[in-house]
Design a protein around this nucleic acid. Structure first.
Lengths: 147, 147
DNA sequence: TCTGAAAGAGTCTGACA
DNA sequence: TGTCAGACTCTTTCAGA
């Protein structure tokens, strides 16, 4: 499937604000709502749009501590990596999980109430999962962009 | 503002799928669409919900190379940090920007077509912004969770 | 805080250029 | 690919419990 400039602009708009109506998008692209609707349907069906999510303010939700946790595990076999992945994404604290190449095997985005909860997550949940080689935490002070 | 269990469940559902209708959410929580509507409005007005975005598949968009770029800058004054932040979020390649504490000053989530485009971004855009102390790139092989 | 009815708005389909 | 009209569905408001 080939995307034209209109498709790309639709994706650009929706990645910033998924609540735009087809009519509003159409007005910006000089079209009516119908072709916008059809194009979005096509983009969804072909997997270009994977879904729509609400962006929450974790500060207000008493989960103001957001961290990136860089994890290196001991067992690098396919089974070992898959095992860690499946078990770690089951935790509510894990907002995102990326398998990576390079120094770390996984980067996790974590939300916890405070530093104490974060440490509890580390000690009682993360560390027990599978044998780890290293864990490095970086705390987020400000989210400046998100799309 | 105090959130009850119903509010939290609404947030949980919408953070995974923002396309659920008020009626569908109501059915899961044993209520009608009206109270769900009112609660969501309240959560939006009070900033618990910051917005709604489409999740795109960057693989398919020929921006399959997603990386976390860890940046340490030379000038740690408030102005220096703010300056870098404002200029870096203007780049299309920058999907997300987090100001962090610890080893790095910023973590960027970057999307590029391939390794060559990524290097071009680094050399022609990122490096020129402000004097940097270190830049470390970690490439994403798989996104296993995102909410 | 909730239900249920009703108006307003958006989505989605189909005929046609 | 696109416009337009109409059916359908969801959102939103309001009266009442």
């Amino acid at each position: 499937m080939v995307l034209d400039e209109t498709d790309l602009q639709i994706l650009r708009l929706l990645s910033k604000n998924a609540r735009l109506t087809n009519k509003e998008i159409g007005e910006r692209l000089n079209k009516t709502a119908t072709p916008i609707f059809k194009r979005i349907k096509r983009l969804e069906d072909h997997g270009y749009i994977r879904g729509y999510v609400a962006v929450l303010d974790y500060d207000k939700l008493d989960r103001g501590l957001v961290a990136f946790t860089h994890v290196q595990i001991k067992d690098h076999s396919r089974v070992g990596l898959q095992d860690f992945l499946e078990r770690v994404i089951a935790f509510d604290e894990v907002l995102e999980c990326y398998q990576t190449s390079g120094e770390f095997d996984f980067i996790l985005r974590i939300a916890a109430r405070d530093i104490k909860s974060y440490q509890e997550f580390m000690i009682n949940k993360l560390i027990d999962l599978v044998p780890l080689t290293s864990v490095k935490s970086t705390f987020v002070m400000r989210e400046a962009k998100k799309e």
